[in-house]
Design a protein around this nucleic acid. Structure first.
Lengths: 202, 202
DNA sequence: GTCTATACTACGATAGAC
DNA sequence: GTCTATCGTAGTATAGAC
């Protein structure tokens, strides 16, 4: 996963992978059928990891909203916070680079990743945003939701530029909190710009 | 540029580049000193292209704001619209993939790209946002500005996922307008969530 | 300044020992 | 199921003709 993320599929050699894993190169052929099989296995592994981390919390948030114990706005803010934390965590570096590369030229690995965690996460987000922004529907609603998600994605996809713009060299707890809170505040403003926000404001 | 964008540095062969260009592979060594020299030349080319397209408009916007003939909020909205149009244009595919790859493991090519157009664009954005969101400064201000920029960046970095979430298969003028307007509305909401927005609202 | 020819290294896949 | 050895191919760089 690390190697594919850093050098891409074509740039990664099975020799280097086998060497880093302390195994023989021929074991890749035996266990995964070849380089491509190993790549797909890495994608599946990433999908399972992210699903395990993110989906339970999102399911709980959705349930709380449906039960009426949590305002949808708060659910969205919490969900975005969780996604931002994941993107800002250094452990997400390998798989994030893998997914970003795969998105530039999506293949079967992307199909699996999307179905595994992107689809359920984004659909939950669209539904929740739809509850708050009742003035929107269809593609307009989805466009607003992707904007919110986009702020989080850019934390990884354009990390190098973001760090320089923010004028930071290391990503510590303080920096993470500042970024997460800014994204959450931006999202709250977007959600409150709908009819409900206007009514209850000032 | 196209080859590096699609397959990455390691995944691109000088043979394939020379073949696509209809020239001899050895000419790369002669003209650019080798594969790496060609890569840096591609980065410089991208930087010059984007600078030419984006910087004049941004300079004009900044001047209009300084002259008092344009509200900073409108300047930010216009600027984000221009960036979104660039990201949504199919001609940006090659160089966008190049830059996104370079960000995952930034090297000298990233330094040049950042200095050439990212730095001037982001600094203009931070300054303009600072004029509207007078309640913010320093890193908090920069974090809000990066959130706005992030929505635009994600249009390219996570294009495959965005398309599926938006439930579209082709990016036509209609889709582009919907996405641009959603990002601009999100940005306006963020800008108006500051002290000036609260005062003038409802 | 661009070409062909070639040197040398590293690639992925496979065969066969254990 | 994992190893070593090896096959054929493709990588970058260079030498030298023109």
């Amino acid at each position: 996963m690390k190697q594919f993320a850093e050098y891409g599929f074509e740039g990664t050699s099975t020799r280097a992978i086998a060497n880093a894993a302390g195994a023989a190169m021929s074991s890749i052929t035996y266990q995964f059928g070849g380089k491509e099989g190993l790549y797909l296995a890495a994608a599946d592994h990433i999908g399972e990891q992210i699903s395990t981390i993110q989906l339970p919390g999102i399911t709980a948030l959705r349930k709380a909203v449906d039960d009426g114990t949590l305002p949808p706005t708060d659910a969205i803010i919490t969900m975005l916070g969780g996604m931002a934390d994941m993107m800002l965590d250094e452990r997400s570096e390998s798989w994030a680079a893998f997914i970003i590369r795969e998105q530039q030229k999506p293949g079967e690995a992307f199909d699996r990743l999307f179905a595994c965690f992107m689809q359920p996460m984004s659909e939950a987000m669209v539904e929740l945003v739809g509850m708050v922004r009742t003035d929107l529907s269809g593609r307009k609603l989805r466009a607003v939701a992707t904007g919110l998600i986009g702020q989080v994605i850019a934390l990884r996809a354009a990390r190098a530029a973001m760090m320089r713009i923010l004028d930071i060299t290391t990503m510590g707890d303080e920096e993470r909190a500042t970024i997460r809170e800014a994204i959450q505040a931006n999202a709250r403003a977007t959600l409150e710009s709908g009819p409900q926000g206007r009514k209850g404001k000032v």
